[in-house]
């Protein structure tokens, strides 16, 4: 048995959660939550925490002289892969024009998720 203490981030209450894990890593209980969203958050955070990663990469040939284009993972990636994702896009430079949603790096860090642009640069 293992206990993990978290803060639920789903509303300003910020309930302190205690998630109890069995020896096989499965969730036995979530306590401290005030509503069901806290229970779901506690379970996911402990078993499969995920995050959107955002960054910016250099862009060349922009008419506006913009130096950088902002990017994000198209959906959540496992939390443990954050640094892999960031280092995988370190060496990229994209060429203008770029549009919101354009893939900047497919299957970033082998996550199966694409890194996409979040702004237009003409």
């Amino acid at each position: 048995m293992e206990e993990r203490n978290l803060i639920c981030i789903n509303c300003p209450m910020g309930c302190p959660l205690t998630v109890t894990l069995g020896d096989d890593g499965s969730v036995i209980s979530v306590t401290g939550n005030t509503c069901p969203r806290g229970d779901a958050y506690g379970r996911k955070e402990v078993t499969n925490p995920t995050r959107i990663v955002t960054s910016s990469v250099p862009v060349s040939g922009a008419k506006s002289g913009m130096a950088m284009v902002s990017v994000k993972t198209a959906s959540d990636i496992p939390k443990g892969k954050i640094f892999d994702v960031v280092s995988d896009i370190k060496k990229i430079t994209v060429t203008a024009p770029v549009h919101i949603g354009d893939i900047v790096k497919a299957n970033v860090a082998g996550t199966g998720i694409d890194m996409i642009a979040t702004r237009d640069v003409e």
Partner: peptide
């Protein structure tokens, strides 16, 4: 450019109330 401070807020978490999705600052501004 238009968009104000959102242009530099490249993180996600904008627009949850309005668009029911988590946009980055530049996407929300757009």
């Amino acid at each position: 450019m238009l968009g104000g401070i959102l242009n530099q807020c490249i993180h996600n978490g904008f627009g949850l109330h309005t668009f029911k999705e988590e946009l980055t600052g530049p996407e929300y501004a757009k």
